[in-house]
C-alpha cells in the first residue's frame, strides 16, 4: 500500500495515519453548527496524536473499530466486510459493528473527519514562516489554498480506487446532509489553515466556492490514471483559476456553483451512482 503514497511534504506515513484512532468523548455538538455559523474564535490550535482530537464525533470504541476497518478499505472497499474485519482486528465480534448506527457511512464519515482533523498537523500556514517547510514560505493565500487542497486530496490516495463507493454511500438520502456538512467543515478548515480569518460578507461564498472546487477535484481524482495524479493537480488549478476570474460576486458564484453541482451530478450519473 505504501507505494501509492504521493507526497511532497514530510507527512507521517499513511499506514500510521490510518491506524491511529482519533477519538473524542465530548459530545458531537459541533456536528451541525458549522453550516450556519462561522467558527473561528474558539477552536483548537494544535493537537497531537496523544490526545483525542477535539471535534471528532466518534467515541473511543467506535474509533477503534473504524480505524482498524479503514486498513481493510483498499482490499474490501467501503463495505460491511471491511467493518467486520476491522471489528475483529480491534478484538470485537462481527456483530459488534452494530455499534455504528450508520454502518458503512460511519466508515466514510470517519475517514472524512479524521483526514480533516489531521490536515493541520501536516501543514499549517498560521505558523511563523521560518517554521514552514522550505518550499512553502511566502505563498499568497490562493497558493496556500492550493497546497492545502492537494495535501488533503493526497490523503485519499491509498483508497482512491474505492472512493466512488464512498460517493455512492454519501449520496444516499439519509447521508447527504452529514456529507455536505463535512465538506463545509473541510472548506472552513482549509481557509483557516491558510491563515484567512476574515469574516466579511464573502465568507459564505468563499466557503461555497472552495467546497465546489474541492468536491469536483476529488471526484476527478477517482478517474485519474496519470502519474502522481498530475492530471488532478492540473484540474484543481483550472478550477481555482475559474474562481479567480468569476470573483466573489454572489450571482457569479451562484451560477458557478450551479454549473459545478450539475457537472458533478452528471459524472456520478454516468457512473451509475445514485445522486439526488
Amino acid at each position: 500500500m505504501n507505494n501509492t503514497i504521493r507526497t511532497n511534504f514530510s507527512s507521517p506515513s499513511i499506514g500510521r495515519i490510518l491506524s491511529k484512532p482519533i477519538t473524542s468523548s465530548s459530545s458531537s455538538s459541533s456536528c451541525c453548527s458549522s453550516l450556519t455559523t462561522p467558527r473561528i474564535k474558539f477552536r483548537r490550535r494544535y493537537h497531537s496524536y496523544q490526545h483525542p482530537a477535539p471535534g471528532s464525533p466518534f467515541t473511543k470504541a467506535e474509533s477503534a473499530i473504524l480505524s482498524a476497518s479503514l486498513l481493510h478499505v483498499p482490499s474490501h472497499g467501503f463495505s460491511n466486510a471491511a467493518l467486520s474485519f476491522g471489528a475483529r482486528d480491534a478484538n470485537y465480534l462481527d456483530i459488534s459493528v452494530n455499534m455504528l448506527p450508520r454502518g458503512v457511512f460511519d466508515l466514510v464519515h470517519y475517514h472524512l473527519a479524521t483526514e480533516r482533523l489531521r490536515l493541520g498537523d501536516k501543514i499549517d500556514f498560521r505558523k511563523p514562516e521560518n517554521e514552514l517547510p522550505e518550499g512553502l514560505r511566502n505563498l499568497s493565500i490562493p497558493a496556500k489554498i492550493r497546497v492545502l487542497c492537494m495535501e488533503r486530496l493526497r490523503a485519499n490516495a491509498p483508497i482512491i480506487h474505492r472512493w466512488q463507493e464512498a460517493f455512492a454511500v454519501m449520496s444516499l438520502a439519509g447521508n447527504i446532509s452529514a456529507s455536505m456538512s463535512e465538506l463545509a467543515k473541510l472548506s472552513d478548515e482549509i481557509w483557516f489553515l491558510a491563515g484567512d480569518e476574515s469574516h466579511d460578507t464573502t465568507w459564505y461564498t468563499r466557503r461555497a466556492t472552495l467546497s465546489a472546487v474541492y468536491a469536483t477535484t476529488e471526484l476527478f481524482m477517482t478517474q485519474d490514471n496519470s502519474k502522481d495524479f498530475e492530471a488532478t493537480w492540473a484540474f484543481l488549478d483550472r478550477r481555482l483559476h475559474d474562481v479567480k476570474t468569476i470573483g466573489s460576486s454572489v450571482s457569479n458564484v451562484t451560477s458557478y456553483l450551479d454549473f459545478t453541482v450539475h457537472a458533478f451530478a452528471n459524472v456520478l450519473r454516468s457512473k451509475n451512482v445514485p445522486f439526488f
Binding site: N80, A81, S84, F85, R88, D94, I95, V97, N98
Partner: peptide
Amino acid sequence: RSLDPGRRPGGQPM
C-alpha cells in the same frame, strides 16, 4: 435487518 445477524466472510457463526 439492521442487526444483520449471521456469519461474515472469515468469521464465526453467531
